[in-house]
Nucleic acid binder design. Structure first.
Lengths: 227, 227
DNA sequence: CCGTGTGAAATTATTCACAGCC
DNA sequence: GGCTGTGAATAATTTCACACGG
C-alpha cells in the first residue's frame, strides 16, 4: 500500500513486532509468517498484516516475510537507523534505575546527559555519566543536539521542567512523573505511570471479584438479563 | 446512563481524571466543570462528559461536578476503596526503584511482598520489606491473598515467571520486563516498556525532522496510549 | 496450495451539537 | 445563562474473507 502517515495505533505496535522479530532472528529462523509473528508478539495475524501493509509489500505470498529484511524496514520506518541522543532529567531512584536499565542503548538510543535540580546530586556518577546541574540544561540540549527528554522527576515540578525543556528545543518527551503535563502543539508526549496502570488493573480485578461472588451465589445485587 | 461495562478507553482515562480531581481538591476548589477538569487532566471536555456519563449522572447542569463526590464515585468504580496487595517480582535496579517510588501506596496499593530468584538478594531490605526467595512465591500469594503482580525482571525469564504466577493465583500483571508475555484468557495484563515508548517517539521525531527539511509545516499533537 | 495484501464490513472511539435542567 | 448528559454523526481501528501471486 505504501501510504504515508501510518495510523497511530499501528505505529505503537511496530516496536512490538520488532522485538518479536529480533527474538525470532536470534533463534536462527529466517522467514516468518504473520501467524508466527502473531505468536511471538501477542498481536493477531490480521492486524499484523494490515499494519505491515502500511509500510509496503514486504512479504511473499505463500511464504511469509524475510525476518532480516522486515527488521530493516521497520527499523527504518521508526527512525532507528539513526542514533538518538536523549537527556534524562532527574537522578533520583527512578532516574538512576532507568539510566542503568540495559535495554536502553538497545535500539539507537543513548543517554547523552543526566541533569538534576538538587545540588547534592551534581557530580554523581550514574551509568558512566556525571549528573549535571539543571542550570545547564539549555546549553547541554543545544550542544548535544538532543530532541528527546526522559522525565523522572517529582510530579510537582513536571510542568515547569517541561516548559523549560520545550523552550530549550526538546520536541519529544517521555514522562515518568506522576503528573499530567501539557505540551504545545507539535511536541510529542508519552507518559508512563505506574499508579495509573495499577488503577486500571484494579478496575478489572474488582470486576472479576464481583462476578466471582455472583457465580458463587453471594449477594446477587443487580441481576439484569436484558443485556 | 449507568450502564455496566465501561468502554476500555474510558476506564484507562478514569485514573487520569482522578489525579486531576485530587489536584483540584487540594487547591481548595469544591466544584469543577468538565472544561476545568479538561485543563487539569489533558483530556477534552466532551470526552470527559461522555466518560463520566458511563458512571452515572453525577454532575449538576449549569454548575458542574462536586469534586469530592466525583472522587468518591470514580474511586469506587475503579475499586480503589479497597486495599490491593501486590507482589513485586524482581529486586534489581528497577524493582527497587519501583518499591521506593512514593506514589505507590498512594491509592490503596501496597507491596505485600518482594521476591527475587537470585540468592544474593534474599534477606535484603527493600522499602521496609525483606526480599524473599522465588521458591516461596506460591505460598506468599496464597497467604497474603495477592491478585496483582508487578514484574521487574529480565525479559528472558518473563514468560516462565508469568506462568508460575498465574498458576499460583495471580490474575493481574503489570509487566515492566522488556518481553512480550502471553497470559490465559481472563487474566489482565498491562505492560510498561521504556524502549517501546522511545521507539514510538522516534517515529514522530523522525517525521518531524523530515518535514522540517521539506517545509515549515509542523505535525501537531499529543500522542496517546495504552494498549 | 499457502499466506500475503487489501477492500469491505463490523466494531469501537471520538466529536458534535443541542435539548434539558439547575 | 451555563453546563451537563447524550443521541446522532464522524472518525479510527479491528476483523473478515478472499482474490492474487509465488
Amino acid at each position: 500500500m505504501r501510504s504515508r502517515q501510518i495510523p497511530e495505533a499501528s505505529v505503537a505496535r511496530l516496536p512490538v513486532y520488532l522485538r518479536g522479530l529480533v527474538d525470532i532472528a536470534e533463534s536462527g529462523t529466517t522467514t516468518v509468517s504473520s501467524e508466527e509473528l502473531a505468536r511471538a508478539s501477542g498481536v493477531n495475524s490480521a492486524k499484523i498484516r494490515k499494519d505491515l501493509s502500511y509500510l509496503g509489500s514486504y512479504g511473499t505470498r505463500g511464504v511469509g516475510y524475510d525476518v532480516d529484511y522486515l527488521i530493516t524496514q521497520i527499523s527504518r520506518e521508526l527512525g532507528l537507523t539513526q542514533d538518538w541522543a536523549t537527556i534524562l532529567v532527574g537522578a533520583g531512584n527512578l532516574g538512576r534505575a532507568l539510566a542503568n536499565y540495559g535495554g536502553f542503548a538497545d535500539r539507537g538510543f543513548r543517554i547523552a546527559a543526566i541533569v538534576d535540580a538538587a545540588e547534592s546530586k551534581h557530580g554523581l556518577a550514574v551509568a558512566g555519566l556525571e549528573v549535571q546541574p539543571m542550570d545547564e540544561v539549555e546549553q547541554i540540549i543545544k550542544a548535544e543536539d538532543i530532541a528527546i527528554a526522559i522525565l523522572a522527576i517529582p510530579g510537582g515540578v513536571a510542568q515547569d521542567v517541561t516548559d523549560r525543556l520545550v523552550g530549550a528545543g526538546i520536541t519529544s518527551i517521555l514522562n515518568f512523573a506522576p503528573a499530567v503535563i501539557q505540551v504545545p502543539p507539535g511536541i510529542s508526549l508519552r507518559k508512563v505511570d505506574l499508579s495509573i496502570e495499577l488503577q486500571i488493573l484494579a478496575y478489572y480485578e474488582q470486576r472479576r471479584q464481583v462476578s466471582a461472588h455472583v457465580r458463587a451465589g453471594v449477594t446477587p445485587h443487580v441481576l439484569d438479563d436484558s443485556r
